[in-house]
């Protein structure tokens, strides 16, 4: 019970700190980009305006949420260690697993909040242009969030042993891009054999399959379901477990 209470306090504080940090500039930038894109799309796409507007909106939502959440995930713990704010935390009866859980939960909440607000802006824009949202709209946004959850969890883990927040962000971004290549990687692995095939197979296991969450790219018949949630939970739990293992003996 105390564990959850502590985690909740850390999560709320993490969310609050991230939100106060030039937060709303991000939304203003999103809204400006979305409006500009809609004007361009209107001129250039004409008959495909709805599609272009939708795709641009989803793409922007995902990239901006990813960039912002990744920035905070990379900085969350190293910054507290650097500024020694962490002294004020661990000189108190705060368990390290609870702290890690709180940090992760606060960042997941940040991602969800950002996506919710940007989705509202996006839907308003679509509505203003007279286009209804696609049937899978909320599934698509939910899958974007699950993708962000996986990458944030990994970023938090990487930040514990990485030399700087920049390298954490770079490594996480590389995992992000590789995660979209997983289906293609599987195709290559099937073709490759011998030692290189085994090596590729091993490497493929270490990268989460983010293409599973790309509903915005998938055919309309596909939809998010229990498997996506289970897979994201698996990766988030694994990253959390690894983080706790690494963090438990850390000295400040």
């Amino acid at each position: 019970m105390k564990y959850l209470y502590t985690a909740r306090s850390v999560a709320a504080e993490t969310f609050r700190e991230s939100v106060k940090n030039r937060f709303f500039t991000v939304f203003a930038v999103f809204a400006a980009c979305a409006i500009y894109a809609s004007l361009l799309a209107g001129v250039m796409a004409i008959e495909e305006e709805a599609r272009v507007l939708s795709d641009l909106g989803f793409g922007l939502m995902e990239l901006m949420t990813l960039a912002y959440a990744l920035f905070h995930a990379a900085m969350a713990i190293p910054r507290e260690m650097e500024t020694k704010a962490i002294y004020l935390v661990f000189s108190r009866p705060v368990s390290r697993p609870a702290y890690m859980l709180g940090k992760a939960a606060g960042l997941y909440l940040l991602g969800a909040f950002m996506l919710a607000v940007m989705a509202a802006i996006h839907l308003s824009l679509l509505s203003l242009r007279g286009f209804p949202p696609c049937a899978a709209y909320f599934n698509i946004v939910a899958c974007i969030w699950l993708k962000i959850v996986i990458i944030i969890s990994l970023a938090l883990f990487i930040s514990l042993f990485s030399t700087s927040p920049v390298s954490t962000m770079v490594i996480s971004a590389v995992i992000w891009t590789l995660g979209h290549f997983t289906p293609e990687a599987r195709f290559l692995i099937e073709k490759a054999g011998g030692f290189s095939g085994a090596l590729l197979k091993g490497a493929a296991w270490m990268i989460p399959d983010l293409q599973l969450y790309n509903l915005r790219d998938a055919p309309l018949s596909a939809s998010g379901g229990w498997f996506q949630v289970f897979y994201a939970a698996l990766w988030a739990l694994a990253a959390y477990g690894a983080s706790v293992l690494l963090f438990r003996k850390k000295e400040f």
């Binding site: 250039m44 796409a45 495909e48 599609r51 272009v52 795709d55 641009l56 989803f58 793409g59 990239l63 891009t177 590789l178 979209h180 290549f181 293609e184 983010l210 293409q211 790309n214 915005r216 790219d217």
Partner: peptide, 20 residues
């Protein structure tokens, strides 16, 4: 397009280019 998982979006851009 592949690494960002943005096939649809890039297909849209190429379609605009095709029309142009």
């Amino acid at each position: 397009a592949l690494s960002l998982g943005a096939r649809r979006l890039f297909a849209d851009l190429w379609f605009i280019r095709l029309m142009q």
